[in-house]
Computed example of a mutant assay.
Amino acid sequence: MKISCEEASSICDKSQYKEASFWDIFKLRIHLLYCKACKAYSKKNSELTSMCDRAGLNMLSKDDKDQMKRDLEKKL
Rank of each mutant, 00 (worst) to 15 (best):
Y41C: 11
Q67F: 09
N45L: 13
S50R: 14
A8Y: 05
C5L: 04
K36Y: 03
L60V: 04
K62C: 08
D66V: 05
Q67S: 11
K44N: 15
S50D: 11
K39P: 02
K65G: 04
L57I: 05
M51Q: 15
E19V: 03
K62V: 01
N45S: 14
H31G: 02
L76P: 06
M51S: 15
C52Y: 08
K27C: 02
K75M: 14
N58D: 09
I3V: 06
N58W: 00
H31K: 10
S9V: 03
C38P: 08
S4E: 09
L76M: 15
R54W: 05
H31S: 03
L33T: 11
E6N: 04
K75L: 15
M59E: 12
S10R: 07
M51N: 14
C38M: 04
Y34S: 14
M1P: 07
M68C: 05
K62T: 09
W23S: 00
I3W: 00
L76V: 10
L57R: 07
A55M: 11
Q67W: 10
S10L: 08
C52T: 10
K2C: 07
L28D: 01
A8E: 10
C52K: 09
S21E: 00
C5Q: 10
T49I: 06
R54S: 11
S4V: 03
C5W: 04
E47A: 10
M51G: 13
K62H: 12
Y34Q: 12
K27E: 01
L33P: 01
K75D: 11
I30M: 07
W23K: 03
T49H: 15
K43C: 13
A8I: 03
E7Q: 07
R29I: 05
F22E: 05
S9H: 01
S4K: 11
I30N: 00
R70D: 08
K39S: 13
W23H: 01
L72A: 12
L32C: 06
E6P: 02
A55I: 08
E47R: 12
F22I: 01
S4H: 06
K39R: 14
N45F: 11
E47K: 14
Q67K: 13
N45T: 15
L76T: 08
M68V: 07
A40V: 06
E73H: 14
D24A: 02
H31L: 02
D64S: 07
S46E: 15
H31V: 02
C12D: 07
K65C: 09
D66M: 04
M59A: 10
D63V: 15
D71K: 12
G56P: 03
I3K: 01
L32A: 01
L32W: 04
K2R: 12
R70L: 08
K62M: 09
K62S: 11
Q16P: 03
N45Y: 14
C38G: 09
Y41S: 12
K69G: 04
L60I: 04
E7D: 09
K36M: 12
K36Q: 08
L76E: 13
M68P: 00
M51K: 15
A20Y: 00
Y34A: 14
L76N: 15
E47S: 14
C5N: 09
A55W: 08
M59Y: 08
D13F: 08
I25R: 03
K27I: 02
S46K: 11
